[in-house]
């Protein structure tokens, strides 16, 4: 299954590794911040309606 990368295996794998980590990081940051802001807004709006 794994293709034979030859002498450049390290370069190719590290390129894919670094890129996937960076993509995962921006996706995770976006999702976490989306959740946090959404929760905070719901709380603030509840306060706003009651108060």
């Amino acid at each position: 299954m794994m293709p034979d990368l030859g002498k450049y295996a390290l370069a190719v794998l590290s390129a894919y590794g670094v890129s996937l980590v960076l993509i995962a990081a921006i996706v995770a940051q976006s999702v976490l911040r989306a959740r946090r802001v959404r929760r905070e807004l719901e709380k603030a709006e509840a306060r706003h309606r009651n108060g």
Partner: peptide, 14 residues
Amino acid sequence: QGSTVKIIYLHVPS
């Protein structure tokens, strides 16, 4: 370029 050509699928789109 041997197998390094596979990096193109990340490098060019990004």
